[in-house]
Design a protein around this nucleic acid. Structure first.
Lengths: 208, 208
DNA sequence: GGGTAATTGTCAAAAAAATAACTTGACAAA
DNA sequence: TTTGTCAAGTTATTTTTTTGACAATTACCC
């Protein structure tokens, strides 16, 4: 499959483009130029054009980008045209907050179930909480595509191993650890502690 | 103040260094070479040395880096030698999860209070929830250094404005929006929706 | 103590990313 | 038609980041 490798930097901007374009669409804006879009995101017009060019380009010279078309192209690129079934592992603080996270539904993800080694509630926001021992059986029979790791650090690697062993290919990891995973698994980390330390660093610098 | 500007790429690695070195310290490891540390983080030894060199370098040729010294240098650089008082704005799903977030305490941050425009609970994990109308008065009298924005998108900018107007210089933002803030304010965003879309993109690519 | 291996700090080269410049097609108005 | 303008797509340049190389320094062994 001869697909071009898109750099990490570009990939990280895709959601920003999508968000901005979605907003424009909701405002019934019909077209947008690279210059104007760049201003909205605080980047350069050149970068916008170069980024879109990576995916073939979907604008019209002298006119700009058609907002609806751009939105649907971006959605396809990002994969929002597909339906993902998601399970959440860990029903603690973070897991429960994620059970109520609107973003899943908004972008077409369906949260099927939650798992915990020691469930103290049997239901979060209408999502049933199962014992972790039932994980394998569940995901084998429910076409699960993606798993969220919301466990403590100590459990995260073994949970990841279990997830992968059961054929799930995408992991959203909230545990503060770099998981060891095979190349064919998609992973994305939300590292709150790292973010907090970056903020701490910036705060210190600014107050100097 | 003649301080060198540290690139964003380096800053983002600082927490990773700190985490790794802290772990080594807990294992009673006494010294570490750039080579070994690099292996732990999955980067090159050269980059480790280059990064540390930005801050003056604290290793010893032929020996390596003393773990305790490195840990304390990194803590100082990151600002963990200072105490921050924190308030959380927004007592919904995310705000409540953050009220129970262990990371604050672990890194020396003190959560003083929470605020909500319409508090439905008066206490989260022992943290008192105030009405947003009391925000100004509270932070003026409690030496608050940092605010967390855990409100819906629509409220985020005006909350940010209020935070800044009351003299708080650091913002940890969980709302899915790029806030407009002055240059002298430190900000760090946790963008769950962007992260989820990046994962969606990667999942789609990997399954091609 | 002297020789050898290890490892830093730093500089230079290479690679990657961002920005700027250029070329071309599309459209509107004359 | 023709022409001027706009803005995308593309190529070139600059800047930033990463990697590679090496002299200088130190620990350790004999």
């Amino acid at each position: 499959m001869g697909k071009k490798i898109i750099s990490e930097a570009v990939v990280k901007r895709l959601p920003k483009y999508y968000r901005a374009v979605k907003h424009l669409s909701e405002q019934n804006v019909e077209k947008i130029s690279s210059k104007h879009l760049a201003e909205l995101l605080g980047i350069t017009a050149s970068q916008v054009r170069q980024d879109f060019c990576n995916f073939g380009g979907f604008g019209q010279q002298g006119y700009g980008y058609d907002v609806e078309k751009l939105k649907s192209e971006l959605a396809t690129i990002i994969g929002l045209d597909e339906q993902y079934n998601v399970v959440i592992v860990g029903a603690g603080n973070i897991g429960r907050a994620l059970g109520g996270y609107q973003g899943f539904e908004k972008y077409g993800f369906k949260v099927q179930a939650m798992f915990d080694t020691n469930p103290i509630v049997d239901n979060v926001n209408g999502i049933k909480v199962y014992n972790m021992s039932q994980f394998g059986e569940y995901v084998q029979t429910h076409k699960t595509d993606m798993a969220v790791i919301a466990t403590p650090k100590a459990a995260a690697q073994s949970v990841a191993d279990t997830i992968i062993a059961n054929g799930i290919k995408s992991i959203w990891n909230f545990a503060p650890i770099d998981l060891r995973i095979p190349d064919d698994i998609a992973i994305e980390n939300i590292s709150m502690s790292e973010s907090l330390l970056v903020l701490s660093y910036r705060a210190k610098i600014k107050n100097k």
